[in-house]
């Protein structure tokens, strides 16, 4: 269990921002931090990593105290068992991919965990390339591998997929889920994408103006509770067309384009580009065996 309770005054684009956090994260959780730009999401990760020192408060992980303003305890980033994947990846340009990852192990020798993350992130063929010859998705995988190789207890990712196309996003999301399970990680992900949050995380922290508005499972945070769908998919509205008395809503779910019938009252609330949740009750869908 990680307990976070601290305050930090920040200089933000619109003046000062008081980041005031009070929450706890269970071991093994996949937590997403969701909120508008400038809400303090990145700063929260940087404080947990030890790159920024809060003014007051306490950060503990299990029985270990990482930060305690009263007792003047503040573990350096080097002493905290965390991995942090930066938004721009922060790969070292002077080193090859292999050297980048081995750097996290403090030297030149590879070990089991090295082989394991290389296999998991599918990096064998890139090992001898330099970072500036890689695509965004490849850099992303390297950055995750580099953070994973020293076996952190907590893996933190700062909007890791914001610069990737959908296909690549999906792949990285799968890699992340696999790593999360395989290494018994506690993962904290900053994300703007509701679909991604539903797919990956079991808990959401909603941050706005430096304060936690709500914390809970994604469905509690983003959905009205009265829906009791057995099937849920999140997607994006691509098109809305009127057909006689009904409306056809075209929705992009993951990689599939789906058409859904809606009545006028529902359709009038929607606009192209809206994020939507498509649910279906158990007795409704048609099941067909795939050949």
């Amino acid at each position: 269990m990680i307990k976070l309770k601290f305050d930090k005054a920040l200089i933000a684009p619109g003046g000062t921002l008081d980041l005031s956090i009070d929450c706890s994260i269970n071991k093994g959780d996949f937590v997403s931090i969701y909120g508008p730009s400038g809400a303090g999401k990145t700063t929260l990760l940087r404080i947990i990593a030890g790159l920024i020192k809060p003014e007051t408060g306490l950060i503990t992980a299990g029985n270990n105290t990482w930060f305690d303003a009263k007792k003047k305890i503040n573990l350096k980033p080097q002493q905290r068992p965390v991995g942090l994947v930066f938004q721009d990846y922060a790969l070292f340009p002077n080193m090859t991919i292999k050297e980048n990852i081995l750097y996290a192990l403090g030297g030149k020798h590879s070990n089991e965990s090295f082989t394991e993350v290389i296999n998991l992130m599918n990096l064998e063929e890139l090992l001898h390339r330099k970072p500036d010859t890689l695509s965004g998705g490849q850099k992303q995988r390297v950055a995750v591998a580099r953070s994973l190789v020293k076996m952190p207890e907590i893996l933190m990712l700062d909007e890791p997929m914001s610069a990737l196309d959908n296909e690549m996003r999906r792949k990285i999301q799968n890699y992340l889920l696999e790593a999360h399970k395989k290494f018994n990680l506690t993962t904290i992900l900053v994300s703007h994408d509701v679909g991604e949050i539903f797919k990956l995380s079991n808990s959401v922290i909603m941050l706005e103006d430096g304060k936690i508005l709500r914390q809970g499972p994604p469905a509690d945070i983003f959905l009205n509770k009265e829906i009791s769908g057995k099937f849920q998919f999140s997607g994006e509205v691509l098109n809305i067309s009127e057909e006689d008395v009904i409306y056809i809503i075209t929705v992009l779910i993951d990689q599939q384009v789906v058409k859904i019938v809606a009545v006028e009252s529902t359709a009038s609330q929607l606009a192209i580009g809206d994020k939507v949740m498509v649910t279906s009750k158990a007795f409704n869908p048609i099941i067909q065996k795939l050949a």
């Binding site: 940087r46 990593a49 030890g50 790159l51 350096k76 980033p77 080097q78 905290r80 965390v82 991995g83 942090l84 930066f86 721009d88 922060a90 070292f92 750097y103 996290a104 403090g106 580099r146 953070s147 020293k150």
Partner: peptide, 14 residues
């Protein structure tokens, strides 16, 4: 980029 040294610290380097 400031991130380079920060990434190095988080990876455990002095």
């Amino acid at each position: 980029p400031q991130n380079l040294s920060e990434a190095s610290y988080v990876l455990g380097s002095s």
